[in-house]
């Protein structure tokens, strides 16, 4: 058994574990065996296979043909690939940046304004309303909006006509100029509750004396927002930005349900683009290359965020 005392000090043992008996860490590795075997079978090996397939031309049946970096070279010149990442950036705006900014404002307004003037029950009720879309499976959220925005019977156009704004009616998901904006708006609706809830939870641990002292000094709500709320919930802001950015990079369900990447390529995203190559066009090698690039971007973004966060704290 190779595992001995040093194991206890591996990593940055946070809790000072002064004197551990030499045999303390030994033998625990047995408990990792099922987890390790499954992790290899379900994640590590498939991921390596995916990387391997990205260097081949393969339809999914027969023998893959090794073609080196050809798929990646082709990606660089593929307009669909680039626009899929542009749409990803748009979705990061809609799913991470806008909800975080709005969420900060709303959480602060609910906590430091509504909660104190109209009672915490009012604040909680509003928070629950903002959060409700988040409990839906994202595909179901797509079904709800696919119905609302349907060009012939959808509720939105009918309502617009009913109130005399018929000229504003659009084929919301079918017009290439509008589709991406519609998807973005839907994703803001879906995502907003998450930062509000996380930020309000974070505000609970801020010392109320800070706010009171600022008020005594005559600080306006905006000043308190900038100088107390925003700095105090920095850690939560990081977590929300990171998780929402990753979710935006991975987004698949809403695109599949709402637009299938269309009309044309107006809303295509990398995950849907790779899915098409895997299961519709039988270009498994090319699909794998797209998925590999997406995976690398996500892992790099995660590490960058964690680095910045570490430096901040």
């Amino acid at each position: 058994m190779a595992v001995h005392a040093p194991a206890a000090r591996a990593g940055q043992a946070r809790a000072p574990e002064s004197v551990r008996r030499p045999r303390a860490g030994a033998g625990y590795w047995v408990y990792l065996v099922p987890g390790a075997v499954l992790l290899f079978a379900v994640i590590v090996v498939p991921f390596l296979m995916n990387i391997g397939a990205s260097f081949t031309r393969w339809s999914g049946v027969g023998t893959p043909k090794w073609i080196g970096f050809d798929n990646y070279r082709r990606l660089l010149g593929d307009a669909t690939f680039w626009s899929s990442f542009q749409h990803n950036v748009a979705l990061i705006v809609a799913m991470a940046i806008v909800p975080t900014l709005l969420g900060l404002l709303l959480a602060a307004a609910l906590f430091d304004y509504i909660g104190r003037r109209f009672g915490t029950r009012t604040a909680s009720a509003l928070r629950a309303a903002y959060y409700l879309p988040q409990v839906l499976p994202v595909a179901v959220a797509g079904v709800v909006w696919g119905w609302m925005l349907h060009p012939s019977y959808g509720a939105l156009n009918q309502v617009l006509e009913a109130v005399g704004l018929g000229s504003l009616a659009e084929n919301w998901l079918g017009d290439p100029d509008v589709a991406l904006a519609s998807v973005m708006a839907i994703m803001v609706w879906f995502q907003l509750g998450y930062p509000v809830v996380i930020f309000m939870a974070g505000l609970q641990r801020v010392d109320p004396a800070l706010y009171e002292a600022a008020e005594i000094d005559g600080a306006s709500w905006w000043r308190r927002f900038w100088h107390i709320t925003v700095p105090q919930i920095r850690p939560e802001t990081f977590v929300v930005l990171l998780t929402c950015t990753i979710a935006a990079l991975k987004v698949f369900g809403p695109i599949f349900v709402l637009t299938r990447g269309g009309p044309g390529k107006a809303t295509i995203v990398p995950s849907y683009f790779s899915y098409q190559n895997f299961f519709e066009k039988a270009n498994v090698g090319y699909g794998s290359a797209i998925a590999t690039v997406l995976a690398i971007i996500i892992v790099v973004v995660t590490f960058l965020f964690l680095r910045v966060q570490e430096r901040e704290s």
Partner: peptide
């Protein structure tokens, strides 16, 4: 991303 595991 599950896309990078899906086909394998």
């Amino acid at each position: 991303p599950q896309e990078a595991l899906a086909y394998p």
